[in-house]
Write a protein that binds this DNA or RNA. Sequence first.
DNA 1: TCAAAAGTGTTCAGGGTACACCCATGG
DNA 2: CCATGGGTGTACCCTGAACACTTTTGA
Lengths: 225, 225
Amino acid sequence: MTEYYSQHDRLFVAVDCIIFGLNHGDLSLLLTKRRFEPEKGKWSLMGGFVEADESVEAAAQRVLHDLTGLHDVYMEQVGAFGAVDRDPGERVVSVAYYALINFDDLDREAMEKLDARWIGINELPPLCFDHPEMIAKARRALRRRFSTEPAAFRLLPKLFTMSQMQSLYETILDEEVDKRNFRKRVAELRCVVPTNLIDKRGSRRGARLFRFDVEEFRQHPQFKL
Amino acid sequence: MTEYYSQHDRLFVAVDCIIFGLNHGDLSLLLTKRRFEPEKGKWSLMGGFVEADESVEAAAQRVLHDLTGLHDVYMEQVGAFGAVDRDPGERVVSVAYYALINFDDLDREAMEKLDARWIGINELPPLCFDHPEMIAKARRALRRRFSTEPAAFRLLPKLFTMSQMQSLYETILDEEVDKRNFRKRVAELRCVVPTNLIDKRGSRRGARLFRFDVEEFRQHPQFKL
DNA sequence: TCAAAAGTGTTCAGGGTACACCCATGG
DNA sequence: CCATGGGTGTACCCTGAACACTTTTGA
């Protein structure tokens, strides 16, 4: 390869994944304890380095795959973090992504092998580097996304109740929502369809289960909540 | 320095600046012709490499300064672009920023020395690499920014008419706006204050000049358009 | 029988949108 | 005197917010 730019420095480029999931109804992040220096033993987002022959996006998918066993997960870039001393060990520029995964279909083994744990979004421990800043920015991006696109259905189980969906929205928007107004708005979305199934686990009376209809959404891509 | 991560690859990291300005009332980008290979001679965003001892943000400010002579310019990160072959010459990960600059106070000399030109946002020539994609993403970010924050005043001259401001919003939102409704909304913003001056250049009758009151905005940071 | 969550409509106000005509002036 | 851009007010609709009681059933 011709060395056009050889008078310039090369830097480590990393990715960090902010992995959102619903752990028994609670919006949570999948975190690990760092297994190497610097800051070994501290809580951390799952990260990895971008190698010369893979795109940044592909590196993020690879890191996520190693931890969860999942392929083709929905991810969105949060941004690049490039302070000189953000990693005290070396100069590393990191690109953060958030991922929305379905709690049910992740690979427990891979997860446990890497010492990963779900931690509630409002109970986060101290984290290494600038990871708290990445998380804050990811939450803002998520809020925008959730009010304009059907993203909740990537976190919710295939069948879900209105209470589950509302509680998820309340956590992400970080504000309480009126139950009747919420259900009224959802009822107008043709892509959220009721089933005949009742979930008896959450209450004596039981709650109707809904599902997200991808095909219907493709045809009527209106969404607002 | 300890080499914690030495088994991984190091990559070139660059910044590219999407420089918005009002060139005689038209929203425009400051573009240059590439002065080196690859794609020498093609139109390009102004870019540069991030060196080991400067933050990514600082690199963007440096690149912008070299071209415009300006310091402390308002910039917002657009995102990282990391496809393997985005630069056909070498593996380069680039972080894009957009900047809003005041057409009046830029340094013509630096600009001409680098063969830079203002080109209307709707008359862009073919550009090198993934720069069109960066610009598209920057325009989306700009649209969000303009509807929730007083950013227009970084592009407009210190004194401006309602027609100028409206036309700027129309270009950025990419839709026509009702004149009376627009003025009504602006009138409610305490940070946009009328002066007694009249601009006679644009019409026979003359148009009232307004200014943006930073201090007033600090005290009443409400803004919506 | 009671506790605990599910489910259900209406009213009201404020904001957003649509809309057309006169004004001032330089040439 | 006329062409050109500057400037102004109202009516209506519709969306978004507030708000409380009944239902079901397992324990």
